[in-house]
């Protein structure tokens, strides 16, 4: 993605921030490393001159983060569970993204905000399912962990996600995001599986980004969509490469990424 940014004399901040999704992943890796006491063998994406924190030289990660815009993360370690710290980073990423998107000129803003809203809505829905079924939280406790700025219809759908009985096939089918679960609602259904829902959401977002890439030409929308497509592809490629390194058969790789 950096080569796209290099075309700009002064790259638009929204594009740089989109690319920095990988930097957020770097920070998450470091945070996990610190929490588990294992800072060797971390996979660090190098964003070159577009990085806001120098982690690629593999030196003192903690010190590097302490001197970066991500310094606020370090005091949270040890006081919050790791999952919540990672959640804070996600929320920070999307909050900044929305700030930058709203500041764009009108012609650039429409496509970017639309794509971002769709992504944030799905991220929140998946988080809601995770929080309910993995972390056993109720709606009130989960509210503070979701990304803000979503529409009222999304907020009410998320609230419903905490109210529908877990084994209610009808309830989930009628839910606004029931399509994320439709392949799960068989006779043996007992509760939604957030992981499979997330795979569906990722595929839907990929389709959405693919569509956005072809809309609103000569605006920043297609570029943001392009970055999102690369982000998703990079993630799939990363899984594939690592799975192959572990000698996982190809079909199994497709199965576990939900593409089987």
């Amino acid at each position: 993605m950096t080569y796209v940014l290099d075309y700009f004399k002064d790259p638009p901040p929204i594009l740089v921030h989109t690319a920095r999704k990988l930097e957020y992943q770097n920070v998450k890796s470091v945070v996990r490393g610190i929490a588990h006491g294992r800072l060797d063998n971390l996979r660090i994406w190098d964003l070159g001159k577009y990085a806001s924190v120098r982690l690629s030289d593999g030196r003192d990660y903690e010190k590097a983060i302490a001197g970066s815009p991500y310094a606020w993360v370090l005091p949270l370690l040890g006081t919050l569970p790791l999952a919540q710290v990672e959640n804070r980073l996600d929320r920070d990423y999307y909050d900044r993204f929305m700030q930058l998107a709203r500041a764009l000129p009108a012609r650039d803003r429409a496509g970017v905000v639309r794509l971002a809203n769709a992504e944030i809505a799905l991220v929140n829905v998946i988080w809601a399912l995770r929080l309910r079924f993995y972390f056993k939280l109720d709606a009130a406790k989960a509210a503070g962990l979701l990304i803000g700025g979503t529409s009222s219809s999304v907020r009410s759908a998320i609230a419903e996600a905490f109210e529908i009985p877990s084994d209610s096939t009808d309830g989930w089918r009628k839910w606004r995001y029931g399509w994320l679960l439709e392949d799960q609602l068989a006779d043996s259904f007992t509760a939604p599986d957030p992981m499979r829902a997330e795979q569906k959401a990722s595929q839907a977002l990929y389709a959405r980004a693919h569509l956005a890439f072809h809309q609103n030409p000569f605006t920043l929308g297609p570029l943001v969509a392009y970055f999102k497509l690369k982000e998703y592809e990079a993630s799939l490629l990363g899984i594939a490469v690592e799975a192959l390194r572990l000698s996982v058969p190809g079909q199994d790789v497709l199965d576990i990424v939900g593409s089987g």
């Binding site: 995770r130 972390f135 992981m195 799975a243 996982v248 576990i256 990424v257 089987g260």
Partner: peptide, 24 residues
């Protein structure tokens, strides 16, 4: 299909591989 389970030599022992997002 959420994870690949590879049984190991000992009874009940196995290795499970899943995407990072599926760790929960």
């Amino acid at each position: 299909k959420r994870a690949l389970v590879v049984p190991l030599d000992r009874p009940g022992a196995f290795m499970a591989v899943a995407p990072r997002k599926g760790r929960w």
